[in-house]
């Protein structure tokens, strides 16, 4: 009796400390970035282009670039990923081919982002002659986010109770009507959250955009999807490594904007999920 009580206490303590250890670095990083970066943030910083060899001025083109990339990548990956996830969850038979496909998707999620970057370079930039451009960058980011969107969709669809499907079919609905009206509405909170989180992740990526879209210094905004853009993660990399004598607050300020950008996407995802969950419960 005594021993089980003690081992329970030890187990709880270990679990608690592990949680703490995982959270503390994140908090420290955010605290340091805010402390060093907050002084750089101003209206001018957010709305003007870099000047003086990027040592002063703002980061407006990089913010716009990242915004375009996030938007463009979503426009490609959302429909593809969600439809693919629906197919895997509802239509695919449990056979050898499907298992290979699922294994492939899981493994794609684990491919290093630099590999996606090089893949984008060779396929979109060079072979398809799209050049170093927004469209190449969006396609590369979209491919990178597909595995997690597909997986999120499939999981959300599979977690809808089987009885919903049975009832719908037993009322004479076709399989597609069943998916459309009896499953999809109840899976949407999970799908939306999963896709938003995946988007938040890719907006912070540097490697996939390195060779496919990102410009070192481009003070004007793009005119077409075949132009290059600056992007926050790459800009941050450039000013921290390539520009000697840059003030610390500019780099930290840029990092702060990037973090706020991705965290607000996350936050948006969580708000949408909470709202949708409140609408539908089972």
């Amino acid at each position: 009796m005594f021993n089980t009580k003690i081992s329970q206490k030890i187990a709880f303590a270990v679990l608690f400390v592990s949680t703490l250890i995982t959270i503390i670095p994140v908090l420290i990083i955010i605290a340091i970035i805010i402390k060093n970066g907050i002084t750089a943030i101003s209206w001018q910083f957010l709305t003007t282009a870099p000047s003086n060899g990027m040592r002063s001025g703002g980061i407006f083109p990089a913010i716009v670039g990242t915004f375009y990339l996030a938007l463009g990548a979503s426009a490609i990956s959302l429909p593809l990923g969600i439809l693919g996830g629906i197919y895997l969850s509802e239509y695919s038979k449990n056979n050898y081919f499907t298992r290979i496909l699922k294994l492939g998707i899981v493994n794609l999620a684990g491919v290093p982002s630099i590999v996606y970057g090089l893949f984008g370079l060779s396929l979109f930039v060079i072979s398809l002659k799209l050049g170093v451009s927004i469209v190449s960058g969006c396609l590369t980011l979209a491919i990178m986010s597909l595995p997690s969107i597909i997986t999120a969709t499939e999981t959300a669809m599979s977690s809808v109770p089987r009885s919903f499907r049975e009832v719908s079919l037993s009322l004479g609905a076709t399989k597609w009507q069943t998916i459309r009206y009896a499953v999809l509405p109840h899976a949407s909170p999970g799908i939306i959250t999963g896709t938003l989180l995946s988007n938040a992740r890719i907006t912070g990526e540097t490697a996939p955009i390195l060779f496919t879209v990102a410009a070192f210094y481009l003070p004007q905004l793009p005119n077409s999807v075949f132009d290059q853009v600056m992007a926050l993660p790459y800009h941050l990399y450039v000013i921290s490594t390539q520009i000697p004598g840059i003030s610390k607050s500019v780099t930290y300020g840029t990092a702060l904007v990037l973090i706020v950008f991705t965290l607000s996407l996350n936050l948006f995802g969580i708000i949408v999920r909470t709202y949708l969950r409140r609408q539908k419960k089972w």
């Binding site: 009885s163 049975e166 009832v167 037993s170 009322l171 004479g172």
Partner: peptide, 10 residues
Amino acid sequence: SLRRKVGMVF
């Protein structure tokens, strides 16, 4: 249409 004609209560 068969399932519509032959309904089910679970």
